[in-house]
Amino acid sequence: MTARLGFDGSWSAAVTGEPLDLVPRLIGMSLIVSPYTDRVERERFFADTFGSQDWLWDLPEVFRFAPGGRRLVGAEFRIPEEAASAEDSGRVPDMPGVRPGGLQADEVKDFRHEVCTVLCRAPGDAVLTCLRDLDVLDEPLEARIGIAPDVALLVQHGTVVGWSITDPARYLTAGFAAPDPAPPVPATRRLLTECLDLVTVVPVVDGLVDGEPAALARLQSTDRDLREQREDRHRADALLELIATYVEDYGNR
């Protein structure tokens, strides 16, 4: 059983039995598992905690700990911009299962943990798994530590090598708002997959950049479907934000 996790920079934390009681928020290509509700609260939260954080153009994974007790109190992750092939995504192991747990830092000290570089998408995007690199798939995982509802850290040789979010469509939101507590409608799940294709599948992205008619038509169709969707508007608006830059840059060609 994994009792301690290693992070970049020889930094480490013990696994506790208390995961975060926070609802994840999937905002664009970022997954937020933190208590703040606006930018001012975010700045205050970072000032009152320690750990790994973003700074100007440096965007590592974010893990924030409370100085008193050294417990994990928040995290932020970036979804990689490039999706793995279906073949590689199919190599993501189902085991071991998720073990709920929190983290307690070994010491009050800042560190930097590098972002993942590869996105592995399960069928229907039921699970998004983000890995340090594809070499992780060459060996078994040692553990999955569920630090929050549907959010797990992936562990190999005692080191955090990735993370995953189960049922990402459920946690779609815009701004700092909490996700809609109602489950997503089927159209939202389908359009999440379409949006992720548009922004992470290299041939599709290249087609948009090169002005290929089929790729542009696909982008325009997705944008139109999201704008016309009446149910689950909050999540539809979140997906519109996800593809907004692509629509602005390529949608009117």
Rank of each mutant, 00 (worst) to 15 (best):
T2S: 13
L5A: 07
F7P: 05
F7D: 05
D8C: 10
D8Q: 02
G9W: 04
G9M: 06
G9I: 04
W11I: 07
W11V: 09
A14Q: 11
A14K: 05
T16P: 04
P19C: 08
L20N: 10
D21N: 10
D21T: 10
R25W: 01
R25S: 05
R25E: 02
M29D: 13
L31A: 07
I32P: 03
V33S: 00
V33F: 00
S34A: 15
Y36L: 04
E43M: 11
R44S: 14
F46I: 12
S52I: 01
W55R: 11
D58G: 07
E61G: 02
V62E: 09
F63M: 07
P67F: 04
P67T: 09
G69H: 03
L72I: 02
V73K: 08
A75H: 00
R78S: 13
E82R: 15
E82V: 15
E82W: 12
E87Y: 13
E87G: 03
E87T: 13
S89K: 01
P93L: 03
P93Q: 01
R99I: 07
G101E: 03
G102F: 03
G102Y: 00
G102E: 05
L103Q: 06
L103S: 02
L103M: 09
Q104F: 01
V108L: 05
H113P: 02
H113Y: 03
V115L: 13
V115D: 09
R121S: 09
P123M: 00
G124K: 01
D125V: 11
L128W: 14
T129F: 03
T129V: 14
C130E: 07
V136I: 09
L141F: 09
E142S: 11
E142Q: 13
R144M: 07
G146L: 00
I147V: 15
P149M: 10
D150F: 02
D150N: 12
D150M: 06
L153M: 12
L154Q: 04
L154E: 04
V155M: 08
V155Q: 08
T159N: 10
T159L: 10
V160R: 00
V161N: 01
W163Y: 11
I165S: 02
T166V: 14
T166R: 15
D167K: 06
L172Q: 07
T173E: 11
T173I: 10
A174G: 10
G175P: 10
G175D: 09
A177D: 14
A177Y: 07
A178D: 15
P183M: 04
P186L: 06
P186Y: 01
A187E: 13
R190C: 08
L191Y: 08
C195D: 07
L196R: 05
V199M: 12
V201L: 14
V202Y: 02
V202N: 02
V202F: 08
V205S: 05
D206S: 12
G207T: 09
L208P: 01
P213A: 08
L216C: 06
A217G: 06
A217L: 08
R218W: 01
Q220K: 10
Q220E: 13
D223E: 11
R224E: 14
D225L: 14
R227F: 04
Q229K: 04
Q229C: 11
R230E: 14
R230L: 15
E231F: 12
E231C: 08
R233Y: 11
H234L: 14
R235S: 06
L239V: 05
Y246Q: 13
V247Q: 14
E248T: 13
E248N: 07
D249F: 08
D249Q: 13
N252F: 15
